[in-house]
Simulated assay, not measured.
Amino acid sequence: MEEKKLRTGIFGGSFNPIHIGHLALGNYLCENGYVDELWFSVSPQNPFKQNQSLLDDSIRLRLVQEATKGYPKFYASDFEFNLPKPSYTVTTLNKLSETYPDREFYLIIGADNWAAFDRWKSPEAIISKFHVLVYPRLGYEIPDSLPQNVEAIDSPLIEVSSTFIRESISQGKDVRYFLHPAVYKIINNEGLYK
């Protein structure tokens, strides 16, 4: 009998910073049987998009590591840091499959990204080889009929954005309840996003 592969969700993003919306969604996916574990894949700084407010790769990774500690189904991944830039999702997923043949990878994207999915690099290749889980986003409809391997997730709608958090911090607001306590502590102690 073939051993069942571990269903590993890949949730990519700049996580600038990671917040409770990311964590709550990941927790929902793990606890409701969509995936066995979830990797928060931190995207490196895109050399073509010099965003002044994007924290250094290593700092964003550290925030994700702190936020995911203590929950065995979460993992902070720097896998994309070692891939050619810019890193395309299709390249990342193919490399992950080669590196971890014991896992079955599920791409996790929001309805906003699904709406633009046909403009991604090799969308058909992604859908033919990997599962795609689409979670709801405010203002975006998930179509009733989706291609094979693509599934709509009925997760709670949690609209917190990293932009909102960065702007609030820069205005001196206390946003501790939007962040994991360990993440809030680092941001506060080190004066990040000030």
Results as ranks from 00 to 15, higher is better:
181 P>L: 03
158 I>Q: 12
133 L>W: 05
142 I>Q: 12
40 F>M: 00
26 G>A: 15
69 K>C: 03
178 F>T: 06
76 A>V: 03
186 I>Q: 03
136 P>M: 07
137 R>Q: 06
48 F>Q: 04
192 L>M: 02
27 N>P: 01
179 L>N: 05
164 F>D: 11
189 N>K: 07
66 E>S: 11
190 E>Q: 13
121 K>Q: 14
37 E>W: 00
169 I>C: 02
145 S>N: 14
26 G>M: 01
148 Q>M: 01
44 P>C: 11
188 N>K: 12
86 P>Y: 03
137 R>G: 02
22 H>W: 15
22 H>K: 08
36 D>W: 13
114 W>Q: 07
62 R>C: 08
53 S>D: 12
183 V>Q: 03
156 P>I: 05
138 L>M: 11
47 P>N: 04
152 A>S: 09
115 A>N: 01
29 L>C: 14
167 E>S: 04
128 S>L: 04
94 N>L: 10
18 I>L: 02
46 N>A: 07
126 I>M: 06
136 P>W: 10
162 S>T: 09
117 F>T: 08
154 D>T: 15
40 F>Q: 09
35 V>I: 13
96 L>C: 06
109 I>M: 05
190 E>F: 00
139 G>N: 03
84 P>H: 00
66 E>F: 01
30 C>E: 00
120 W>A: 12
148 Q>T: 13
113 N>I: 05
173 K>L: 12
80 E>T: 10
77 S>W: 13
40 F>T: 09
161 S>M: 05
37 E>L: 06
157 L>K: 10
45 Q>W: 07
162 S>W: 02
184 Y>R: 00
71 Y>V: 15
63 L>N: 03
87 S>A: 09
168 S>D: 08
13 G>R: 08
145 S>C: 13
93 L>T: 07
56 D>I: 07
66 E>V: 13
146 L>K: 09
18 I>T: 07
112 D>G: 12
191 G>Q: 09
66 E>P: 00
61 L>G: 06
69 K>N: 11
151 E>D: 00
92 T>R: 03
44 P>I: 11
25 L>V: 04
127 I>M: 14
122 S>M: 09
183 V>N: 04
